[in-house]
Nucleic acid binder design. Structure first.
Length: 536
DNA sequence: ATGTGCGGGCATG
DNA sequence: CATGCCCGCACAT
């Protein structure tokens, strides 16, 4: 998806965030005049002419719609194209369940949180279990009766209390050719496994098991006899394993070992099947447990990692690996440096936000436990900010402008405590910011896109304040983002030195070539890039 | 079996 | 009245 990558690369925050609207507004902003829009983009961004058609189409797409975000967090708003499949399905990486808001026009979903090991046991790689809560109520109850695949202690559902004590809510609204998305609240828990990951593992698990059971029929029958004696979970410790090698379906590259870069992205059935062993404990399981290798039941790559060397540069295997096309990240979230701030602070965000880098660079397991909530005397859960509260509107070029009044009004009038007043402890905040700064200036967008694009907001040319062009007849005022120099990107190819000073013309050339290479690269590695999508 | 969306109903402030 | 949340139902995957 070149456009998504480019949108992130050029530092465009989000289209939705630059217009003032609220999901409850009777009239949603319209942007139905691409011609005028293009003119505005050209003028305000001082784009060189003529532009190639592909560039124009990308700019238009970027200007008109946001690229889908799988992990929205904070009080954010996006406007997706009504053609966006994931938006049509109201997908989210977070486990969101439908919530009746008695409004047929607006679909409301609330976050279910994340399922963790009640003992917060450390997986062999140092990470911790973060399962996706089942959306269906019955399935979720069933899920909670299971045990941790690692230590067999109980599973615990950490509810989301990120919206003034209530779960984070997401709102979806189809209006014309746009799908409006609005999120309220900041997730106060680790990310669960994404839906696509769950589905991928599930299908892979079935395939793997199908191929496994076929030649092992006789043996499986024997296993099942014993398995029935085991109540639940992955407790196969009492079952025999005649030949462990027979069950070593895990590739050597399936899991990054702490302190050791993972050589390739585990985009294989073996990998997925491995993950299934971790979390699908309710399924019929072959007796793997006896095989002591942690590879057997490790879940997905670690979720609690800290960047061991946040100031690393692109002297890493990055170039080699992306050429190899074996390790392409999938999440288009939070690409631009602005969002790094909270991603770095989010101890669970590394998994996807840095899905690329955490496989190529040395990470260290975080000692931080995922228990981000504790009960208060009132039986409520209280956030114990394992990452600081942040206002996502601020890093998104709203540092000089107040949040949209409409949103503010809605939030303050529909919650018990206004979010402006919410000030959880800002533990590690300064560290996170520092890391973010390091990251944002380290030379390239470190996480995903799988493209060779570097973003240097501070290096953008003459300030060309771009106000997102909306419909001239739009009923709502335009958000004037004073710092929004989004359409004047400086994009570099990764092998270019970060610090090299180039004049403006060269900058623009680099931009174009960078975009071009990005697109060609993204196309080249499409199948890998879409791992986290439904079409992998 | 599970995910998803819809909508009734109830409680709360 | 908005909101949160429970429930059942129908339908899709």
């Amino acid at each position: 998806m070149p456009a998504a990558a480019v949108q992130e690369a050029v530092g465009v925050c989000s289209y939705g965030m630059q217009l003032s609207w609220d999901i409850n507004d009777p009239q949603m902003p319209q942007n139905d005049n691409p011609i005028l829009l293009w003119g505005a983009v050209q003028r305000q961004a001082s784009l060189p002419t003529p532009q190639s058609s592909w560039f124009k189409s990308i700019i238009l797409e970027l200007a008109l719609f946001d690229q889908f975000r799988e992990w929205p967090d904070g009080y954010v708003r996006f406007i997706y194209s009504s053609d966006e499949k994931k938006a049509q399905r109201h997908l989210s990486g977070w486990a969101m369940r439908n919530t009746n808001n008695h409004n047929g026009l607006i679909l409301k979903k609330s976050c279910l949180g994340v399922v963790v090991c009640a003992q917060a046991c450390a997986l062999p790689d140092g990470s911790q279990l973060q399962l996706r809560p089942a959306i269906c109520d019955k399935a979720r109850l069933k899920q909670q009766k299971k045990t941790c695949p690692n230590c067999h202690s109980a599973l615990e559902l950490i509810p989301c209390r990120g919206h003034s004590g209530y779960p984070v809510t997401n709102f979806w609204r189809l209006d014309g050719n746009a799908i409006f998305f609005q999120a309220k609240g900041v997730h106060d828990h680790p990310r669960p496994e994404s839906k696509s990951e769950t589905e991928a593992r599930r299908s892979a698990f079935k395939r793997q098991m199908a191929s496994f059971y076929q030649p092992q029929k006789k043996r499986i029958q024997e296993f099942e006899v014993e398995e029935n004696q085991v109540s639940s979970g992955l407790d196969f410790s009492n079952t025999p394993l005649e030949n462990p090698d027979d069950f070593d379906i895990v590739t050597e590259t399936s899991f990054p070992i702490p302190g050791q870069p993972c050589p390739s992205f585990p985009n294989s059935d073996a990998y997925k099947a491995t993950c299934d062993l971790a979390t699908f404990q309710g399924d019929k399981m072959p007796p793997f447990q006896k095989y002591s290798s942690p590879r057997i039941y490790l879940p997905r790559p670690p979720c609690s990692y800290e960047l061991a060397n946040p100031a690393y540069t692109n002297s890493s295997p990055y170039l080699t690996l992306y050429k190899d096309s074996t390790s392409i990240p999938n999440d288009t979230d939070c690409i631009h440096p602005n969002t790094l701030q909270y991603n770095v602070n989010s101890y669970s965000s590394y998994e996807r936000s840095f899905d690329f880098t955490d496989k190529q660079h040395v990470w260290k397991p975080s000692l931080e436990k995922p228990r981000v909530v504790e009960r208060t005397d009132h039986g409520q859960f209280q956030a114990v900010a394992t990452r600081p509260y942040y206002n996502p509107e601020l890093p998104c070029r709203y540092l000089t402008t107040p949040p949209p009044s409409a949103l503010q009004t809605v939030i303050t009038t529909t919650t018990k405590v206004s979010y402006q007043a919410y000030q959880p402890p800002a533990r590690k905040y300064s560290d996170g910011v520092r890391e973010a700064k390091s990251l944002s200036s380290c030379g390239y967008a470190p996480e995903d896109t799988g493209m060779s694009v570097a973003v240097y907001p501070e290096a953008w040319g003459p300030p060309a304040t771009v106000t997102r062009a909306a419909s001239p007849s739009g009923p709502l005022p335009m958000k004037t983002a004073g710092d929004c120099r989004a359409i004047r990107p400086t994009v570099a190819i990764p092998h270019q030195p970060v610090s090299s000073r180039i004049d403006e013309a060269e900058t623009w050339d680099a931009c174009l070539s960078g975009l071009g290479s990005a697109i060609s690269h993204s196309e080249r590695v499409g199948p890998f890039f879409s791992y986290n999508n439904e079409d992998f």
